[in-house]
Design a protein around this nucleic acid. Structure first.
Lengths: 196, 196
DNA sequence: GTTTTTTTTGAACGCGTGTTCAGTTAACAT
DNA sequence: ATGTTAACTGAACACGCGTTCAAAAAAAAC
């Protein structure tokens, strides 16, 4: 009737997050109820409030965690020797990181609308930070005459959109390995920025 | 208390669609209630059912209309003289068409999750049809030695993702004119497919 | 073994939702 | 002017929602 045997917050908390992430990615934040998440975890809805103050906080947490992870992982990357190597590295990093976390990526992109304004602003800042990594690479390459780009902010957005689109179709069981996918995207990105 | 003066289905029906489109794009299908849509139109929620059998049909209708419009507009395009001209034309058409309808594009991309399975399948078919236009161009260009592409299906998706991403950031009041935007994207697309 | 803390249940609150439909008014047809 | 059709209102139905919290059981601490 009350506490379930074997329950422990160290176990339940991550399961709540995982269930929320999966369901939000699958059906969308607004379409998923707390009772559904709870059911996925195997608890009643009231139990979720031990792990999140409310539904919005749960979403924000997931999105912020994703962005923090992305920026942290990016910061650990060694940066390539020149603009071209840097761009290649960014491209491969982006594909690799995003393919490891399709649900988190999907939510980070698709659920911005469901954030409150302050939360939205916070996530946007993190996104802009990540984008500026690419902008810097492109700018350096343009200055060095390695790239030929008509408009760097537009190019940044175009490349990010292209790369991030990979999560919408890639399947592990598909004909292409991850390295193949990285290679194809890299070839396209270098071409898109007029690399020589 | 009953029929509103001056009301006419020829007026109300398109207003229902327009309101739904705007609100769905703004906040997402699941987060928007029929009462909100009705309020936007200036009627009570029950009145909406004169114009749509249910909420899902309203969404499906909007998405299908968008895809039909896209394919119809595409069919009216004269096709370029060779693969390169065809690709340029496709690129400029895509940007132009999508920039004219940001809300419809947004919904067509973001609300797939909220369709019932049969509806989803129908929209997917229309999407695949549109994508095959680009695939055909790329294939022709590859065969003719005009393009150099490692994987045509991947390249198709990458280019579509890049191009469609324009709607997420473009603003009429921005520094760039539409032709500027088309030009930038065209330069990047041709580069991405290794056009020579 | 007893007490305290942890983690859950279950019930309930105060809404909101999509939808239906009888009734009412406006517009149209005769 | 009268009758019919069109287009709406308003109320209600049968849920579902996010959230709260007292009570209960399990685990940990003493």
């Amino acid at each position: 009737m009350a506490r379930t045997q074997g329950s422990h917050s160290g176990t339940t908390r991550p399961r709540v997050r995982a269930a929320a992430q999966r369901l939000f990615a699958q059906s969308g934040y607004a379409a998923v109820s707390m009772r559904q998440i709870a059911s996925e975890v195997g608890v009643q809805a009231g139990a979720l409030y031990n792990y999140t103050p409310d539904k919005q906080a749960l979403l924000f947490d997931l999105m912020q965690q994703h962005m923090d992870d992305l920026l942290a992982a990016r910061a650990l990357q060694t940066h390539g020797a020149g603009p071209l190597a840097a761009l290649e590295q960014f491209t491969r990093f982006h594909i690799r990181f995003h393919l490891d976390r399709p649900d988190a990526v999907f939510i980070a992109y698709m659920e911005l609308r469901n954030l409150t304004a302050p939360h939205f602003e916070q996530i946007e800042q993190l996104r802009r930070r990540y984008e500026s990594e690419l902008t810097d690479i492109l700018r350096t390459g343009q200055r060095a005459g390695v790239f030929e780009i008509a408009d760097i902010p537009v190019a940044t957005r175009a490349v990010i959109a292209m790369l991030t689109g990979v999560t919408t179709w890639y399947r592990e069981s598909g004909a292409l390995s991850r390295v193949d996918v990285e290679d194809v995207y890299w070839q396209m990105v270098r071409g898109a920025v007029g690399a020589r």
